[in-house]
């Protein structure tokens, strides 16, 4: 399999993860570690298939997915903000609930269990741009994706602008860095948190919809850890939107490698570990690096300053 195809598939894989990651990033920026991205994405994926099935329209399916995932995240927000439930615990129950609900509802809704495939007319359409064909390699890689993938690719730039240049972005940063200071500056912390989480929900819904509708089917557990991968990507990028774009593409590339190399006879299971291993390193490495740098810096200034001091 050639590198262009691998990269094209990488972009396609990165799309949903990017959408979800950007949502998680906003939540992180208001100091909510949203472990439940996986659950919201799963709800989004399932609901978008249900929506597309009943309405016979892909975009209404997407809307359905977004609504369901946003509704779920509002419940989550109420639980952690109003009822002060520990966010991690609430997140895990959301994940369990999302997995249970989608497994169970598959039966009454579609009369099947395990997976349901829609007719291929309900697949997410891809956008073909003639002008891109003129550009070698990059043109090929970036061509023929769904609208949501393009949206995902633009989103980090939009978020970077919003966070750094607008009043809303300043509010978000203030709430995340020091909630008390934000309160005292007259910022409505609650509103900021709810709105950030709502956007998080919308993006998770979009991510789930892209995941499910691009292959016009739902199977149980189809998110397969992508929510966690998204978390790992933003952790690695230190919640910077543009760096997160890069890490998400990197994870997409790893996933694409898995798909293409497993056909050649490598153990797909071992390759399947790759994104998670990367994510694990991503979570731990910055801390290790930070400690090392601090240690070296500290030792250096210690020896320098102390010897300087006693020389005189």
């Amino acid at each position: 399999m050639d590198i262009v195809t691998i990269l094209t598939v990488a972009v396609r894989h990165a799309g949903p993860v990017l959408l979800v990651a950007m949502g998680g990033l906003l939540a992180s920026r208001v100091n909510i570690f949203n472990l439940a991205l996986e659950g919201f994405m799963l709800i989004g994926a399932f609901s978008s298939i249900v929506g597309a099935f009943y309405t016979g329209n892909v975009w209404l399916g997407v809307l359905f997915g977004v609504l369901a995932s946003t509704l779920m995240i509002i419940i989550y927000a109420v639980f952690i903000i109003e009822l002060e439930v520990q966010p991690v615990v609430c997140a895990i129950s959301i994940i369990t609930l999302a997995s249970g609900l989608t497994r169970y509802l598959l039966n009454p809704v579609f009369g099947v269990s395990g997976r349901y495939v829609l007719s291929s007319e309900l697949a997410m359409p891809v956008v073909h741009m003639n002008w891109l064909e003129a550009i070698p390699v990059a043109g090929q890689i970036l061509n023929n994706h769904s609208l949501l993938v393009y949206f995902a690719l633009v989103l980090p730039f939009v978020l970077a602008f919003v966070i750094n240049k607008t009043k809303y972005g300043l509010d978000i940063r203030a709430v995340g860095m020091n909630e008390e200071a934000a309160v005292s500056a007259g910022i409505h912390v609650r509103k900021v948190k709810y709105s950030a989480l709502m956007i998080n929900g919308i993006l998770c819904g979009l991510g789930g919809a892209e995941l499910a509708l691009s292959v016009y089917m739902f199977n149980v557990g189809m998110t397969n850890g992508r929510g966690y991968t998204a978390l790992a990507a933003i952790t690695l990028a230190g919640c910077n939107p543009l760096l997160s774009l890069i890490t998400c593409l990197l994870f997409g590339f790893a996933e694409s490698l898995v798909v293409s190399l497993s056909g050649v006879g490598f153990s797909s299971y071992l390759l399947g570990m790759l994104p998670y291993a990367l994510a694990l390193v991503a979570a731990v490495a910055p801390q290790v690096a930070r400690r090392c740098i601090h240690f070296i810096k500290r030792k250096k200034s210690e020896t320098e300053m102390i010897s300087e001091y006693y020389r005189n």
Binding site: K167, R173, A174, N178, E180, A181
Partner: peptide
């Protein structure tokens, strides 16, 4: 009630930023 990682400017305009 200040945010140490932000600049003087951003701290001062917090909540009253001119748009």
């Amino acid at each position: 009630m200040q945010i140490p990682q932000m600049s003087i400017l951003e701290n001062i305009i917090l909540g009253n930023a001119p748009v």
